[in-house]
Simulated scan of single mutants.
Amino acid sequence: MKKCISIFLLWGLSLNAQVGINTTTPNSTLAVNGSLGANYKQVTANTYTILANDHYLTYNGTGDATFTLPVIGTGTTSYTGRIYKIKNISTSAITLQASSGNTLRIDNTPVTSFVIPLGAYAEVVNNTNTTGGTWDLSFTVLPKPSNVEIYGSQLSIPPHGNGTPGVADWTNHTTTSYDTGSGTDLWWVISKSSTTYAHTAAYSNASRMMIVYEYQGAPFNVTNMYPILTAGNNSSFPDVFTASFVSLANNGTGGKTRLTVSVSRIDFIGANGSNNSNWTGTFLLNLLLARKY
């Protein structure tokens, strides 16, 4: 009698259009009220043929790898709707290729293979075609983007030491009038060292100045940090400057961040009557610090 009941139950289940697991009110052909598990495998071999019972594959080998999708046939080997998920956590690339006679469909032009770069993820699903695109590349995620921290500020370019009149050079922050910012977002001009122009028949050297700035807030993490500098002019003078990065290090007062910059005047060299290229105005240095992590 128990066998008959079991047969009737199974027969009734097969006729039901909607099946529920852990639910008495399924709203789909198969409704699962709970977690779902599928086969997971980590691959380290450089060549791997994907099996019929694989589902989620992670590659963590050394060197470029080739993953080959199963051969698609008919009947029980048609595999229509089968999904494979592939994640590349190695430092190399995976070439995902279809078996002989099959193809991958990224758009309307089938291809034989697709490269999954390091850090990327791809998902393929089998369609009903045996030609013209056997596997749809249904979803891809590129490697995670690099996160970047950005900080910006405007610093002062003090007058040249040999201007007319000039501002004498200093060291150890003995002059404070060219500091910029406020609170912890404050930059000191620790020192400036001026080099006057040299203009002869044989050569010309621009007026320039080496400036050391020190940030008074918490030291920056300078690992993988890249300064971008532009010199600006906020005055009525025609002066044009170029700023060159020299160094960025946490070697200042109490380990504070110090930025060393070389600034040169480039619109003219020498003297023109009472005007000379040893500048006397205060100009701007636009600073952008970008750290990649």
Rank of each mutant, 00 (worst) to 15 (best):
S90A: 11
T62L: 09
Y56T: 11
T91E: 15
T80L: 08
A65E: 08
G61K: 00
G75P: 13
Y79V: 13
T74K: 04
S90V: 04
R82V: 14
A98S: 04
A93R: 04
L57E: 03
G61T: 01
Y59I: 03
T103Y: 12
N60G: 07
S92C: 05
G101C: 04
S78R: 05
K87S: 11
Y59G: 03
N60S: 09
I83Q: 14
N60L: 07
T95H: 05
H55E: 15
H55V: 13
G73E: 15
T103E: 15
K87R: 07
T95P: 02
G81A: 09
L57C: 03
G73C: 07
P70E: 10
A98H: 04
R82H: 14
S92R: 00
Y84E: 08
I86D: 00
L69M: 09
T91R: 01
S99C: 06
G63E: 08
A65W: 02
S92A: 11
T77L: 10
I94L: 01
G75R: 03
I72T: 13
F67L: 02
S92D: 15
S90C: 07
Y59S: 01
H55Q: 14
T95C: 02
S78Q: 14
G73H: 07
G63I: 02
P70S: 09
N88E: 08
S92V: 05
T77N: 13
P70H: 08
L96N: 02
G101Q: 02
T91A: 12
K85T: 07
Q97R: 15
Y79I: 09
Q97A: 15
S99N: 14
N102E: 13
S99Q: 06
V71G: 12
A93G: 04
L69W: 12
S90M: 06
T74Q: 10
